[in-house]
Write a protein that binds this DNA or RNA. Sequence first.
DNA 1: CTGTTAGCGCGTTCAT
DNA 2: ATGAACGCGCTAACAG
Lengths: 350, 350
Amino acid sequence: MTEKRKLTLKDIARELGISISTASRALKEHPDIAEDTIRLVKAYAEKHHYVPNTLAVNFRKNRTFNLGLIVPELVHHFFSTVISGAIDTAKKNGYNILVSQSNDILADEVMACRTMLASSVDGLLISISNETVEGVHLKEFLEEGKPVVQFDKITDHLNTPKVIVDDFNGSYMAVKHLIGQGFRKIAHIRGRTEVKNASERAMGYKQALLDHGLELREEWVKGCKLIHEQEGYDFCKELMESKNPPDAIFCITDLVAMGVLKYLKEKSIQIPEQVGVMGFSNWKLAEIVNPGLSSVDQHGYEMGQKAVLKLIDLIKNHDVENDEIIELKTNLIIRGSTTSTKNSDKVTLQ
Amino acid sequence: MTEKRKLTLKDIARELGISISTASRALKEHPDIAEDTIRLVKAYAEKHHYVPNTLAVNFRKNRTFNLGLIVPELVHHFFSTVISGAIDTAKKNGYNILVSQSNDILADEVMACRTMLASSVDGLLISISNETVEGVHLKEFLEEGKPVVQFDKITDHLNTPKVIVDDFNGSYMAVKHLIGQGFRKIAHIRGRTEVKNASERAMGYKQALLDHGLELREEWVKGCKLIHEQEGYDFCKELMESKNPPDAIFCITDLVAMGVLKYLKEKSIQIPEQVGVMGFSNWKLAEIVNPGLSSVDQHGYEMGQKAVLKLIDLIKNHDVENDEIIELKTNLIIRGSTTSTKNSDKVTLQ
DNA sequence: CTGTTAGCGCGTTCAT
DNA sequence: ATGAACGCGCTAACAG
């Protein structure tokens, strides 16, 4: 084992015949210290590659420059994009990120929080699991004076800043676009009622229909449990086989839309001529699939950035009672799956 | 700010009228300590929610139970799968994972290593960037006695354990499958020569052709620079427009295969009847696309698990001179894009 | 069985 | 301008 013992302030002091505190201050260019001494110490430190022992510094200062980040699922385009933004931003500000996942299981989330708290992160970024309601495990952070920032999947039970996407508006604009393309019988495959993002999107869908005088049929609204591709496939089948099939389907997320596309293709139903399809999240696969899937971009990278900056801000200001809401605008990405080729169908909306 | 001061051993000792070390030992059920004392201390600690100060413990023991993990790109199905496996396994063993990305830029990788080293991880997991050759920044870890485990994208210049996928064999089996399905003119869209994985896959491809008496035409081998979808599209176009177009295309990765599929669909070339397509990596989208894309599964999750277990092993044994190679078997996933419907085409291989 | 003591590396207050 | 001394919270060698 190679492991050469690291140089400490004590070593420098001994070698240079000065005291430890002088060495310490010299390295920080403390005004009390003589120019000559500073130069001397700095030169020696430089030459022998002195690196302060982070563990000791952290201990002394009671902070680590590490931030915790917990998401429901790591292997997920949106979340990994958020993480990517968070990591890059953290790095720029001298912070590292500890990543963990809950698999949408409360017990796992609590565990993840505990280990993070134990490993002494300076703050926490979290997108809660479907099972999380009260979030007492998150209050533990606040009680220790460690700030928490929620993002994307949030709970209002917790008094922390939240970085979210304007789901309602994103959804509204998506449906409005469908209407503008001439679609009139617009179905929605939504998520679970208890999940805020899903509700917001469903509300945006309904409002858009209402505002444009279209009928809102409950039979055209289907609820996913797991947000899987298969559900999209199955609900699409149900919808298309019903007495009154829709001419467009707005899906809670791109993955579900993939299932929808699959069914339509299998049945040789023309997209978008016969049925338009709109996703949400703008995953990588939305641009790869054929025809391209129109979708709502959630700016995941930016969400990660904003959340980290907010958290660092809280840490610096010892602020744990902040509950600001940062809402990111969405971006409608229009591709082949919704752009009707028949110009006669199109409608100009205000 | 709420921040209630945390209970320390000193507090417990004072309250219970015992010494600090007795309190410390009692909590650890040290054999020297009387049963009664242990009960007493434990009860008090429990009641007042004593939690040892991790920063102090880390400082004392000179370790953090944090592992560093660096990948070229976080938003990437394969890498996020590896990370997922790494995190789950680390958690089970009481370790946290610090994640960073290099964006395939050497300078970023060096930076990431430095901050990780500074934040005192106990060891490092890394999949190097395309630009990394010597890896002196990684040697810094070894010099400090901190073990490093490489995975997937590795360099032989570094004397560390490596967890890799058997690219050669995966590729060989994939091409063999194509041959078995009756394809005879098999092209390969490969990656850069300098990248080991790409070379291994290309070699597997060549060997399979050789072993089955098929011709190896250099014009059927195209080299990607960026491994993007567009390259797949462009090379596919080149291949199909050439005088002697192939009847199957084996792609270095699923993303490239997506470009290939896109071109073929646009030209209404039947898959797999006219041209078979094989990917590599088995991304999520391989099963979503239509027809399903045959691919080679790399067991990313398992790679993450194995790498973490190896690293923890090294840490426990203070072992930094280990250069074991852990090679994971691949798994051929057969889907619609290669399963010829004409049984007459099929060949039985040994 | 338990307490005393020393020290990890660094920052900081208080002398000088 | 510099040094001595203390303490952060915990562990462990040593002493009873």
